[in-house]
Amino acid sequence: MRGTSLMRSALGLAAALLLPLGLAAPMAPPAAAAFDPAAFDFWVDSPVMGPIKTRILRAADGNTNRVVYALDGMRATEIISGWENDTNVPQVLAANNINVVMPVGGQSSFYADWNAPSNFFGVPPGSAGSSSGSGATEAFLSGPGKSYRYDWESFLTNQLRWALRDRLGFNPYRNGAFGLSMGGSAALTLAAYHPDQFSFAGSFSGYLNISAPGMREAIRLAMVDAGGYNVDAMAPPWGPQWLRMDPFVFAPSLIANNTRLWIAAGSGLPMQQDLEIPFGAAADRLVRGGPLEALALANTRAFQVRMMSLGAQNVVYSFPNAGLHAWTNWQEEAYRMIPDMSANIG
């Protein structure tokens, strides 16, 4: 009994430190998910970050009025969005006559405009470290957000926005944005500060109060683990730039903008499809994804209380009885969200 209690305590501490930030490795995708040949690469230059790839999937009916940005999690790769690689959500959106915009890259970026390129203790990237391994071993390697300053919010709301209009005819107003974990928080940030561009924002398993006690250090650990990034390069502690990124702080703006919000987190219990995989993989998914999603649920519930205390009437909350910190959960949540989002964009 004592050993079980200690293990539970250890798991709880690890989960508290790694919180609902998407630190669990993305779980196995459904069989239908993968690179979609119907989608295409759309390159746009950022004056700060250089050429940035976005994957585009056109609406089935050919309209250009209904547009949604699907934002990735902390382990975003430079190759393909997790939404395309690990789910069939882009195809479902396109079938519902919604144009899908999937920015590629931005690992640990929070889709924010950073204060400086990421480095540690003033040591520039490329000075040390190993090219193998992950997390802390990557801290001194060069690469996205290290050899240059991340400038994602400006890119999404300026260069990419107008390039989509000018080259594809996409409507630059009343778009939607949604994402998991890091991307969920970022979707709310984009909607809060760019209400003409985003009339809808969805957060799945997001961390929506980054100024709560312990959160900054938890995010620090998360960013080191997800590519070796330094939170201090993103925003100085507790200053205006940091507070600007906190959904708990800017909640009144979301209400004043009358942004339609979809706020969701799973229960931490497995769905049936989480159990229909080999035993070892299912056990791993449950052990890692359960505690993380339980904490995501607690974090999201706190944001719900904040919004309710402000009298918000513009939010749909989704707390399903099952759902781990896994792509299976986020895919099912997107299915639930799509009708409401469809009615509130364009």
Results as ranks from 00 to 15, higher is better:
48 V>K: 09
95 A>C: 11
137 T>K: 14
152 W>M: 11
100 V>T: 10
104 V>K: 02
44 V>M: 00
59 A>S: 13
144 P>H: 10
56 I>Q: 04
66 R>G: 02
101 V>A: 07
71 L>E: 01
62 G>K: 11
156 L>K: 04
72 D>R: 06
82 G>M: 00
56 I>P: 07
60 A>V: 10
156 L>M: 09
54 T>I: 06
156 L>G: 04
80 I>L: 14
103 P>K: 03
83 W>E: 00
115 N>F: 14
137 T>W: 13
151 D>P: 06
74 M>R: 07
148 Y>K: 08
88 N>E: 13
126 G>D: 07
157 T>K: 03
55 R>S: 12
134 S>Y: 15
104 V>Q: 01
76 A>D: 01
68 V>C: 11
46 S>A: 11
58 R>T: 12
90 P>S: 09
134 S>F: 15
73 G>F: 02
82 G>Q: 06
117 P>T: 07
106 G>R: 01
131 S>T: 15
134 S>W: 15
48 V>N: 03
50 G>T: 04
140 F>E: 03
51 P>V: 05
48 V>H: 02
153 E>L: 09
127 S>F: 12
62 G>S: 08
155 F>V: 06
147 S>N: 13
113 D>W: 08
141 L>P: 07
59 A>F: 08
70 A>R: 03
85 N>P: 00
100 V>H: 07
128 A>L: 15
107 Q>Y: 08
80 I>R: 12
47 P>Y: 09
124 P>M: 06
53 K>G: 00
61 D>E: 11
152 W>R: 07
62 G>D: 07
120 F>A: 03
147 S>I: 10
152 W>E: 03
60 A>K: 14
122 G>L: 10
48 V>C: 05
106 G>L: 08
125 P>R: 06
67 V>H: 01
137 T>P: 02
126 G>L: 04
77 T>N: 05
90 P>A: 05
148 Y>C: 12
80 I>K: 00
65 N>Y: 12
118 S>Y: 06
138 E>S: 15
153 E>Q: 15
107 Q>W: 07
49 M>Y: 01
120 F>C: 02
137 T>R: 14
119 N>D: 14
84 E>T: 10
63 N>L: 10
75 R>M: 13
51 P>N: 08
107 Q>A: 13
144 P>I: 02
157 T>H: 03
62 G>M: 07
75 R>K: 14
114 W>H: 14
138 E>L: 15
127 S>W: 05
151 D>C: 12
142 S>Y: 10
109 S>Y: 04
66 R>P: 01
68 V>A: 11
45 D>I: 02
115 N>A: 15
